[in-house]
């Protein structure tokens, strides 16, 4: 388990080191830069400093996971991701500030079709209801085999692979994870529709909708497997990997499609971006805009509907205390 955790964090560290490459050429540390800027000394220095900091943090974290005594492994496994995220975030922010004076404002005229024809969702949108079938099937399976459910069963495992929390055979204990999955799925359904109707000017919204749908189905599969696992008794790594096999090819295809050359940047005003990550523009009706770093969308935090979605997510997370055993 110790080795698996170390390899996992090494992989995450390598991905974090690659961040400057996982974005458009005309963006560096969320700063829109002139053509050819990436070949300048300033750009190379910024990338090198970022990579050194993230690489050092990764080495530190992996070493800690390999070397700490057994009784400190769980605590170390909880702290290590935070250290990696903090080192990456701080280093990214510092390079963003350093390159900010080199920023250029990308310009492009927006175009709109003057039509009142309905804005139709992609034809496969009814897949959004598949989770209802998955959760329903899992619930029926549990109900039909109630007597075979142990009086007490594990629901959480530590970094050492050993169970560290159990639930009794009760309505909350057995159906709680499924109920949480239903709530999560409901919130994700709202996100799916918001993604489609709240990002009308982005040229990649079909790709985004497809990717979000894949994540939606993956979460439903994950939570229905988790819920039914009291009877299925699959090893935790199977449950973790099963959805990944569904989602990874779709995510890779999505990123490849979105990184295709020739798509001009969304000319959102530079002054509306905070640290290149948070978009706040009260004069823009969009709920979602293209991210300045990486691929995909981010919220327009000036839109009140976005806050509605976030409050909904907070509600789902808060409900874990009520519905999970």
């Amino acid at each position: 388990m110790r080795l698996t955790l170390s390899l996992l964090h090494l992989f995450i560290g390598v991905m974090l080191v690659a961040i400057p490459n996982l974005t458009r050429r005309e963006i560096l540390f969320a700063v829109p830069v002139p053509q050819g800027f990436r070949d300048t000394d300033a750009a190379r220095r910024a990338v090198a400093i970022f990579r050194i900091v993230v690489a050092l943090a990764t080495v530190l974290c992996v070493s800690a996971l390999l070397l700490v005594p057994e009784d400190l492994l769980n605590a170390t496994a909880a702290v290590v991701p935070l250290v990696l995220v903090a080192a990456t975030g701080i280093s990214f922010y510092l390079q963003n500030r350093k390159l900010a004076p080199a920023a250029v404002q990308h310009t492009r005229a927006y175009e709109a079709e003057l039509s009142d024809a309905p804005d139709r969702l992609p034809g496969y949108w009814p897949l959004v209801f598949v989770p209802v079938l998955l959760f329903g099937a899992a619930a029926l399976y549990l109900d039909a085999n109630w007597d075979q459910i142990p009086e007490r069963f594990p629901i959480h495992w530590g970094a050492d692979g050993q169970p560290n929390r159990w639930a009794p055979r009760s309505l909350k204990g057995v159906f709680g994870p499924l109920l949480f999955g239903v709530m999560m799925s409901g919130w994700f359904t709202l996100m799916l529709f918001a993604t489609w109707f709240g990002s009308r000017r982005t040229r990649m919204r079909s790709v985004m909708f497809g990717g979000m749908m894949a994540i939606h189905l993956m979460l439903a599969l994950l939570f229905s497997l988790l819920g039914a696992n009291v009877l299925l008794r699959l090893p935790p790594w199977v449950i973790a990997l099963a959805p990944m096999t569904v989602i990874l090819p779709i995510i890779i295809a999505m990123v490849r499609k979105m990184s295709e050359a020739g798509e001009p940047m969304d000319p959102t005003p530079n002054e509306c971006w905070k640290a290149g990550i948070i978009y706040y523009n009260p004069n823009d009706a969009a709920l979602f805009v293209e991210k300045r770093e990486g691929f995909g969308y981010t919220f327009n935090f000036a839109n009140r509907w976005v806050w509605g979605l976030l409050v909904g997510l907070a509600g789902v997370i808060a409900a874990t205390r009520l519905v999970l055993p």
């Binding site: 709109a112 003057l114 804005d119 709240g198 009706a285």
Partner: peptide, 15 residues
Amino acid sequence: SLPSVRRLAMELGVH
């Protein structure tokens, strides 16, 4: 018929 205010505003990136 013209598009709704909400729809046109989103497409043009204005309020």
